[in-house]
Design a binder for these strands. Structure first.
Lengths: 315, 315
DNA sequence: CACGCTCAATACCTTCAAGGTATCGTTTCG
DNA sequence: CGAAACGATACCTTGAAGGTATTGAGCGTG
């Protein structure tokens, strides 16, 4: 049996007349007669009773008509869904984020993607950078978000956002009195550093910046993630350099200050990481959304930073 | 798209290798390659990623595999159900019965049919003989049960059972004292007659029997159906000739007695009526069951009558 | 490094069935 | 009784499914 048989059968059943059905199907009458005969023979069932007026469905034919229409709609839905899946509009995207990735940029990006591709189910996995790379190799995830990425074989990256560095300061700390903090002045205060994970990491970046500025930071504590770091600032452990998006995390007693006379490289990239050989249309769609998102962010920067950094609230 | 495409696609998806899939499908490799290409082109979707090791499903392919398997099973079920319908094993049978038809033979027959063809839904309609004929003409029913059928054009009959006539008598009535009633003696007692419906009817039959025996019955009351007739017997309106199956209806104060020296034709046929041109396999199946049922009834008659007539209970 | 192995893809031929035209046999209706 | 309408049949044409032979690409191994 063939889908053509079903199409023909439905036409004949609906027209109750082989000639009209043939016209509707844009074929001539005899082939249609034969196709119907074939169908009946293959099923071993009389589907029509031939009357001088035309074709009339038998009870079995009546049932088969329902079934045929059902099959037709199931097939239509299947192709339609598959096509949507092929265009990256339907399916599942496994995404890895790092500890403090839930803050700031990433949720807004994910929301934008969800908005453009509502039928793609996004599944978030919290992973360290090393775990992400491993998971990408094993295809357990399709994209990972990260900072401080060294070039990796077989993996490609797409820049999501470039964030300035800010200083997290306890509100009673002397540096909190100024609206911005000279980078040099960090030399004189104990500093909390993070994360302690796989190199190169954000800690290395900070160390290099200090080195370039001609001092070695007084490390009061090393911690695993930004949330812990800011919490220690609240506890009076010292100051802490953080990427801008961490300001989404407001802790009582902590204020964020921009760097004054900051070195040109006092900023850090947030990128997403994916298999270079991955042709998945969902990934393409996601990367496309990332690029669009990055552009809108760049344009909207001024207003965005004012609210995102929480200056108004702190002043 | 074609069901063949789906079959081929499933094979390739399962084997992850065109060569092996081709072997499994008993075709050679190149046509299979082309069919898969065709399918992808028609859908506009890459279903497989070609690797040196073989064929690997894309995400869209994964989805389409599920859909394809689903379609396959839907089609299988459709053909299977249609075939059962074509063999009269699945479907619906609209049956007409007359007022007191719920008594005795018919329910047992229907039960037997239900047992042989559990997936045929039987729908009962209560109709008079005239209504049945009309409904058969309009195809609103497929079979009707009736007594006293004159040959009808376009309609055929099948004998279901031949029932003896019994006399329903009030237990205080003088005739109730004997174990059987001489037909002649009915001449001396008022008689309830039924039904008053379309001729020829059971009333005509009784009149002819009396005429043959040389008397005219004293008609105390004419009623529409057997149930009412027997109820009037209970109320003392006289005796009433009834078909054997009416004994299934036990009313307090009423006993049933066989006829003694009954004329050879003191019996009445229960038949079912159907369109002579009806080729429906369900009807054929039903008529087959009727014939089988009629035979078992004939064989089992002795024991059957003893219990069905209720003699034991009345004696 | 080259050779062979294993894939899928391509080229080209064959065949069978789907589709077309012409015609027939019935039944119905004017 | 002839015309019209309907499905069935006979016979021809063609396109696509299937077959064989071969190519080309990636991998592993001697």
């Amino acid at each position: 049996m063939d889908l053509r048989h079903l199409r023909y059968f439905i036409a004949v059943a609906e027209e109750e007349n082989i000639g009209r059905a043939a016209a509707r199907l844009h074929i001539s009458q005899p082939p249609l007669t034969r196709q119907i005969q074939q169908l009946e023979e293959e099923l071993g069932v009389r589907l029509f009773t031939r009357t001088p007026k035309g074709m009339e469905l038998t009870q079995a034919g009546e049932l088969f008509l329902e079934e045929a229409r059902n099959i037709r709609s199931v097939v239509e839905q299947a192709t339609e869904r598959t096509q949507r899946a092929g265009q990256g509009k339907l399916g599942r995207l496994d995404i890895a984020i790092f500890g403090s990735g839930i803050l700031g940029t990433i949720p807004r990006l994910l929301l934008a993607f969800r908005n453009d591709y509502p039928e793609v189910k996004t599944v978030l996995h919290t992973m360290t950078k090393a775990e992400q790379i491993e998971a990408l190799r094993q295809r357990r995830i399709t994209v990972g978000f990260n900072r401080m990425l060294a070039p990796l074989p077989d993996l490609a990256t797409e820049l999501v956002a470039t964030e300035r560095l800010l200083v997290a300061i306890n509100e009673h700390h002397p540096l909190a009195r100024e609206e911005s903090v000279p980078f040099q002045s960090l030399a004189e205060h104990p500093m909390v550093l993070f994360p302690t994970g796989a190199r190169p990491n954000f800690m290395d970046k900070v160390m290099r910046l200090c080195e370039a500025a001609g001092f070695v930071p007084q490390v009061s504590q090393e911690v695993g993630d930004a949330v812990t770091g800011v919490a220690l600032v609240a506890g009076g452990f010292g100051v802490c350099l953080v990427p801008e998006s961490v300001t989404a995390l407001t802790l009582p007693g902590v204020v964020f200050r921009p760097l004054q006379d900051a070195p040109a490289n006092a900023s850090i990239d947030l990128s997403c990481l994916y298999r270079a050989d991955d042709q998945s249309p969902i990934l393409s769609a996601f990367l496309e959304t990332v690029r669009a998102f990055r552009d809108t962010q760049t344009i909207e920067t001024p207003a965005d930073i004012r609210s995102a950094t929480g200056w108004d609230a702190d002043m």
